[in-house]
Amino acid sequence: NKAHSQPSGGRAPIGYPGMTGMSDAGNFGGNNFMPINGLTAIQNQVLNLIKACPRPEGLNFQDLKSQLQHMSVSAVKQAVDFLSNEGHIYSTVDDDHFKSTDAD
């Protein structure tokens, strides 16, 4: 009276591929910055500047541009666009003034 046991629940050999192939993947594409918290470097800079602005109406676009002279206007605009889309910043008195939602 032998039970025919089948080792069905055996060990499944799960190979762990481990993406160790590339250590410290370099950022080769010039405008593809490393995302830190889901934001690119440029978006982070813009967000930080807006956060740092003490004025109640927020930072205006002119100031933003002049503080980010190494970036093109369109790049700054894009970052602002993205950040407001995500809800990190919002426009205040007009479309040129931005305030951060993170720092209240």
């Binding site: 407001s84 995500e86 809800g87 990190h88 910043i89 919002y90 205040t92 008195v93 305030k99 939602t101």
Partner: peptide, 20 residues
């Protein structure tokens, strides 16, 4: 200035929706 409040509220909603 209602506009600011509204924008802020909208932004916070977007942020909240993102974080869910």
């Amino acid at each position: 200035l209602v506009r600011i409040q509204r924008n802020k509220a909208a932004a916070l909603l977007r942020l909240a929706a993102r974080n869910v």
